[in-house]
Amino acid sequence: MLDLNPDLRAFAAAIDEFCRRECGTREQRDALTGNGTENHHGGLYRRMAELGWLGAGLPEEYGGAGGGMTEIAVFAERSAYGLAPVGGYTTSIIAAGPYLKFGTEKQRTEVIGGVAAGAVEAISMSEPGAGSDVAALTCKAERVDDGYLINGQKTWCSNAHLADHILLVARTSGKRHDGLTMFCVPTGAEGLRIKGIDTMGGREVNDLYFTDCLVPAESVVGEADRAWHQLTAGLNAERLILAATMLGRAKRILDDTLEYVRQRTQFGRPIGTFQALRHRIADLATELACCELLVYRVAAMADEHPDRQLPREASMAKLKVTETAKQIALEGMQMMGGYGYATEYDMERHLRATVVSTVYGGTSEVQRDIIGKTYGL
């Protein structure tokens, strides 16, 4: 890792040791994840919460440790490197942002306090007809005497089946951008059905079906019809968190590849000593070092100026790290040959995890478009 301050180095070392002990072998990880079909283990996650790690980047008044984006990045990176099955962290810490910025005190206490204590949260924007174009969503929340009546479908909602609440973005008026509102919807709400979507990554994402789902007016997070502006204030943090997570995964993939090419012998010597592979490793390691510098620089910028939006830098981090992680996984599989394709090894799981990282949280194409716009293009 970078030469962080002593407290952050100790934090990273503690996470590394925990992961080595609790999920350091393939057998342990298979037992915790149902042979790779689940990406989150509640018991392990709650133990991390008891250690204070899940709240490292959350305010002390809500059960956190008072840190910032750098602490979040360290936890995201090192837990991903350790292959800890705590997939609920990413959506939880991303969802926490809007509650911290715009939620009521009651919402903050319940949701942020829950995240620090080990609860999982989810956020739902995408619909069958609205993915990258969030403003095209049609899931409707109609104002009624008792609150809001929600009808419609959402899709690709990560960890909804594990979450206590869903931070829902729904349409409350006909305006394209200025007609969206955020709601805090309990996952047990009447009129909400959660259905898992089978993917090659296992059980992670869900369809949500709302049928006359009534939520009280106090479920609104922030201001009605202002969700678009609230979203743009938080998407930068989301991209940085995803980048930090994939940074850890990419480091693990490179280390797994190195271990293989050092041990595998062909033509009388380790295959890593052949120039073709040695140069590929050198290029990948260099790209990964650039990713690390970018992630922690953007995290430091976010901590130095908490109210400043960083669309260019956050999108650069998300784009660079996820595309690099995918490249390392593809190269790692190639260098491992048939063993990289075999489920006996982690490489094929690495590839699945990295390929989809260039899609969720804003595709690589969307990130490039955002970056270009910051240059006036």
Rank of each mutant, 00 (worst) to 15 (best):
M1D: 04
N5H: 10
A10G: 02
A10S: 15
A12S: 11
A13I: 05
A13T: 14
F18H: 09
F18Q: 08
C19F: 04
R20T: 12
R21N: 08
C23I: 10
R29H: 08
D30S: 09
N35Q: 09
T37E: 12
T37S: 11
H41R: 06
G42Q: 15
G43S: 14
Y45S: 03
M48P: 15
A49P: 03
L51K: 15
L54A: 03
E60Q: 12
E60N: 01
E61D: 09
Y62Q: 00
G63A: 10
G66Y: 05
G67F: 09
I72S: 09
A73G: 11
A73N: 08
L83I: 14
A84F: 02
V86Y: 03
G87H: 08
T90K: 10
G97R: 11
G97P: 02
P98G: 01
K101I: 06
T104A: 03
G113W: 07
A117C: 02
V120S: 00
V120H: 03
S126P: 13
E127L: 05
S132W: 00
A136I: 03
E142V: 04
V144M: 01
N151F: 07
G152R: 14
K154C: 05
T155A: 02
L162K: 12
D164W: 00
R171Y: 05
M182A: 12
F183M: 00
G188T: 05
R193L: 15
I194L: 13
K195Y: 01
G196D: 11
D198I: 04
D198T: 11
G201S: 04
G202T: 12
G202C: 12
G202Q: 13
V205D: 00
D212Q: 11
P216D: 10
S219I: 01
V220Q: 07
V220T: 07
G222D: 13
H229T: 15
L231I: 15
A233W: 00
G234F: 06
L235E: 15
L235R: 14
N236S: 11
E238K: 12
R239Q: 14
L242Q: 09
M246K: 13
L247N: 08
T257A: 10
Y260P: 01
V261H: 09
R262Q: 12
R269F: 09
P270R: 03
F274K: 06
F274A: 07
Q275M: 06
A276C: 05
L277N: 12
H279M: 11
R280V: 10
I281A: 04
A285L: 03
A285G: 09
T286H: 07
E287D: 13
A289T: 15
C291E: 04
E292A: 08
L293T: 15
L294M: 11
Y296Q: 05
V298S: 07
D303A: 02
E304N: 08
E304G: 03
E304T: 10
D307Q: 14
R308S: 02
L310Q: 10
P311Q: 08
P311E: 10
M316F: 06
T322Q: 00
L330C: 11
L330S: 08
G332I: 00
Q334T: 13
Y339I: 01
E344P: 00
E344I: 13
D346L: 14
E348G: 02
E348A: 05
E348P: 01
R349A: 12
L351A: 05
R352C: 05
A353H: 15
S357F: 06
G362S: 13
T363G: 11
V366K: 06
D369C: 01
I370Y: 03
I370K: 08
I371S: 09
I371W: 14
G376L: 06
L377I: 15
